[in-house]
Nucleic acid binder design. Structure first.
Length: 857
RNA sequence: GCGAAAGUGGCGGAACUGGCAGACGCGCCGGACUUAGGAUCCGGUAGCCGGAAGGCUGUGGGGGUUCGACUCCCCCCUUUCGCACCA
């Protein structure tokens, strides 16, 4: 045999990375087609808003998805891993207002730049499937979808008070109001009355809630947020007749605590309640009208967050409490919400904190009707509202019942007497999609004087967004200023008509793009149902937790709309959801305004994309936020260089191996130990990547293997890597024993294969160096032998009084009695038992193995 | 206020179903090689005692269950994140 001398190139990531990225692009390496012979895997990261430059916080998400996609590909799955751009939206328009760039130019330039950034990171996307929502070939299907929803009464138009952001000059959906402010700019939201388009998401409220329970691979946190957002309340509507006006009916209230109705000593109406609005217009109601005006002018934010003091006004009217038969006053209160329930509530001051405060302030009577079980109400009762369940008192025939039962019986009684009904209320509101903006999908309807609102026929789609528009920054839609767009003819009568000038909320675009990726160039339909049947649902979806409500509820809703249209049989679009943590710098979120962004291109230039990827994956679990440090990145670079030196120096040795399977050879202890380590590492990395996505521990397992390999070479006299090799002109020796080479080859190849999802460019280069063609990305994932991964013998810990004092190495078939015997004979154990009496000796067994526990006094 | 999650070395973090706490990395200390080392290779690194072998104490605090608790249960403290007049 003898020695091979080998010059080892230094690890220079930039050249390697460029080389492989070019090859992947030229070879369309990650494009896929339907293949019924292989299991499919749809791996998706939330597509990107093309804001300009991506920082490492953005790209962390794509790197996580890429590790999963690459690993799944190697494990034999047909992997769909596409990318695209959520390209409509406000910032493009703001850029137009500020510096005159057309939104389209601004957007397309940003896309080009960011696409380059992602390609330089080596993310394995099927770029052939790239989509941008601002292109007519995409947004025409938004319009198509809208028309289908219109046909099914899932889209409708109504005048309503809407959330208005005075800074962005647009309407916001409820989901887009955060702490009373605009989700984008934080400006406090005001109210406006406008004709608006809505999607009837409430039709699916119950299903979205109920099916959510079955999303077992979603984070609990997200499911809880969605559940709270949908906000189901079980209760009853109860009618309180108006006193003295028999034919005017009465006022319905919604309550979840009908058991407290005997304590309802007043009624409260929202300022928006239609009845109060009517009363305030009557003569002599100037005071009421004034108060109403004042309430409605109160800052909506403050009203919603409870910062405004509770205030009321006595309307002078009375209603009859249908259970007590007594007349109670009707007040208007600024804290009652017009849009929830019936806009009217019964005031039960003894059992509701808010009503209690209200009653104290205005001197209204407080009647206790529920007592804590097993005790009388304390003297404090009148000082505080007690909101718990208990035993009813002073409630006529229902006195003595427990709250839960009382709710049942009293609801039934109300139903029987025709005063009310069991109902369920949801906090979820219909989704307002109208936006008075330019850079979005035009809503495809026209208004004709003769025919009214007329949908644009589907064969006339798309309604194109005109290229020229004036961006004034005023509140009205720029489209309304373009006569060539507005003036049209009615599709029904051919007469003059005006186009709708609002555009759609961009969340419409993003609520079905994952279907489009399955069939991105279809020009007959949004997608071919058969293709979605093959690829859907998304198996692994990752993105920021900030989309827990908005995007993720809308997508679940629109998925059901497509189901209703017969386009898919899927109930849920995303099987597994991973919400990745943010990247912080100096404890703060990266943002352009804070000036603390880390540009991936800078890092790639210094350390290479592979080191950047490895660092971000290694530093913390994907769900956790990470603190950016340059030192950590440098550590990852060092690790890669260490792998490079190891593999490059041993490549020739490994390539010349003449024993294929180390399993068939006699191994010495050192060789056997390395082989066990290899199989053990394959097992760990495989499990860390697949059921769980513990990328950080997968990397540390690979680091351990590398450490062991260096140790192996150091201990093996005929192999030299490391310092000597490096500083003395790079020497690697061929091992004398074929077994050594076989074991080494197995370890090195497994290492390169498993490291490749993290550091794909370097591993491609090394894989080629090891004599393989066809690319590491397409190579099969290494397999492990359980028997090798495990130790051949069982190691059994021995505890004395709870502390482990010894470990016995025994044959796995030794029985419990033998273990006891060996444990007591162990010198370490004997030392700890000196002068004590053994009272108990237990052999405990679990999946982790057996254990001997000795108790001595 | 309500709800959820989390508290482990100087730091980021491991420990899967209760079984050697601190894997792996950063940082730091030392050795080798060197004109040099901020490169590389090797070793050390929770605290305290000890020359060493070894021992004791340790996973926010206090109780409990168990042969055995970072892990399970109860109370408290702290932090983070959601929700927040939804009747």
């Amino acid at each position: 045999m003898g020695y091979n001398f080998r010059i080892v190139r230094e690890y220079r990531p930039q050249a390697i990375e460029r080389k492989w990225q070019d090859r992947w692009r030229a070879g369309r390496a990650f494009e896929v087609s339907e293949d019924s012979d292989r299991p499919k895997f749809y791996c998706l990261e939330m597509f990107a808003y093309p804001s300009g430059h991506a920082h490492v916080g953005h790209v962390r998400n794509y790197m996580i998805g890429d590790v999963v996609a690459r690993m799944k590909r190697m494990r034999g799955f047909n992997v769909l891993h596409p990318f695209g751009w959520d390209a409509f939206g406000l910032p493009a328009e703001n850029a137009a207002i500020q510096n005159g760039t057309h939104p389209e130019t601004w957007t397309l330039e940003n896309i080009a730049h960011m696409k380059g950034q992602l390609q330089r990171l080596g993310i394995s996307y099927a770029w052939e499937r790239e989509i941008a929502t601002c292109l007519p070939e995409y947004y025409r299907w938004n319009q198509w979808l809208f028309l289908k929803m219109l046909e099914r009464d899932l889209a409708y138009r109504r005048r309503s008070s809407v959330n208005w952001c005075p800074s962005c000059n647009t309407v916001l959906a409820n989901e887009q109001v955060v702490d009373g402010g605009c989700w984008r700019c934080g400006t406090p939201v005001t109210v406006r009355e406008l004709e608006q388009w809505f999607f009837r998401i409430t039709r699916y409220a119950e299903e979205l809630l109920d099916a959510g329970i079955r999303l077992t691979d979603w984070p609990d946190k997200v499911l809880t947020m969605q559940r709270n957002w949908i906000g189901r309340s079980d209760g009853a509507r109860v009618r309180f007749p108006l006193e003295g006006v028999a034919d005017e009916g009465g006022i319905d209230v919604f309550t979840t605590r009908i058991d407290t109705i005997y304590g309802a000593t007043f009624m409260l109406l929202a300022p928006e309640h239609p009845l109060v609005q009517r009363w305030s217009g009557e003569t002599g109601a100037e005071a009421l009208a004034g108060t109403l005006g004042r309430f409605q002018a109160q800052d909506r934010t403050a009203r919603l967050t409870g910062e405004v003091e509770k205030e009321g006004f006595d309307t002078g009217r009375k209603v009859i409490n249908p259970f007590t038969g007594r007349a109670v006053p009707v007040w208007v209160a600024n804290f009652v919400l017009g849009e929830y329930g019936t806009g009217a509530v019964m005031g039960v001051p003894a059992h509701d904190q808010r009503d209690f405060e209200f009653a104290r302030k205005y001197g209204l009577p407080i009647t206790v009707v529920v007592q804590p079980e097993g005790q009388g109400l304390s003297a404090d009762a009148m000082r505080e509202a007690w909101e718990g369940a208990g035993i009813l008192v002073g409630s006529g025939e229902f006195s003595g019942l427990a709250s839960t039962e009382a709710i049942e019986r009293m609801t039934a009684a109300a139903e029987a007497r025709g005063l009310g009904a069991r109902t369920v209320e949801y906090r979820l509101k219909d989704w307002g999609i109208s936006r008075q903006r330019y850079w979005g999908t035009p809503i495809p309807v026209v208004y004709c004087d003769a025919c009214g609102m007329v949908p644009v026929p589907t064969d006339e789609l798309p309604v194109l967004l005109p290229k020229t528009a004036a961006f004034s920054g005023r509140g009205d839609s720029p489209l309304a200023q373009i006569p060539a767009f507005v003036d049209t003819t009615c599709p029904e009568c051919g007469g003059p008509a005006r186009r709708e000038t609002d555009t759609m909320d961009t969340f419409v675009d993003s609520s079905w793009y994952f279907f489009r990726f399955c069939d991105p160039h279809n020009d007959h339909l949004p997608f071919d149902p058969e293709r979605v049947a093959y690829w859907g649902p998304v198996d692994f979806y990752s993105g920021g937790v900030e989309h827990a409500i908005l995007h993720l509820i809308y997508s679940r809703f629109i998925c059901r709309v497509f189901r209703e249209l017969g386009m898919t049989v899927l109930d849920e679009p995303f099987t597994r959801l991973l919400t990745q943590g943010m990247v912080l710098k100096a404890g703060q979120v990266m943002s352009k305004s804070k000036g603390n962004v880390v540009d991936p291109d800078d890092m790639i230039q210094r350390y290479g994309a592979d080191a950047l990827r490895l660092y971000v994956m290694f530093v913390a679990p994907p769900e956790k936020e990470i603190e950016w440090t340059d030192a950590g990145l440098e550590g990852s670079y060092r690790f890669l260089a260490r792998v490079w030196r190891l593999v490059a120096q041993l490549a020739e040795t490994v390539r010349s191996a003449d024993v294929a399977d180390p399993g068939g050879v006699d191994l010495n202890d050192v060789e056997r130990s390395l082989r066990r380590k290899t199989h053990n590492t394959v097992k760990r990395v495989t499990n860390d990547l697949d059921p769980r996505v513990h990328l950080n521990t997968a990397v540390s397992a690979l680091m351990e293997l590398v450490n062991d390999l260096y140790g192996f070479c150091g201990r093996n006299g005929s192999l030299r890597v490391g310092r000597e090799a490096d500083s003395q002109g790079s020497v690697a020796a061929v091992a004398q024993r074929p077994a050594t080479v076989a074991v080494l080859k197995e370890a090195i190849e497994a290492l390169v294969l498993m490291l490749s999802p993290f550091a794909p460019h370097m591993c491609e280069e090394l894989w080629e160096e090891l004599g393989h063609t066809g690319g590491v990305a397409a190579a099969p994932w290494p397999h492990y032998q359980e028997a090798v991964a495990r130790a051949e013998q069982e190691v059994v810990p021995v505890q004395v009084n709870g502390k482990i004092r010894a470990r016995l190495t025994v044959d796995a078939d030794a029985d419990d009695d033998r273990l006891r015997e060996l444990a007591l004979a162990d010198p370490q154990v004997a030392r700890h038992l000196e002068g004590r009496k053994v009272t108990k000796i237990v052999v405990a067994g679990g999946q982790a193995g057996r254990l001997v526990s000795i108790v001595a006094v």
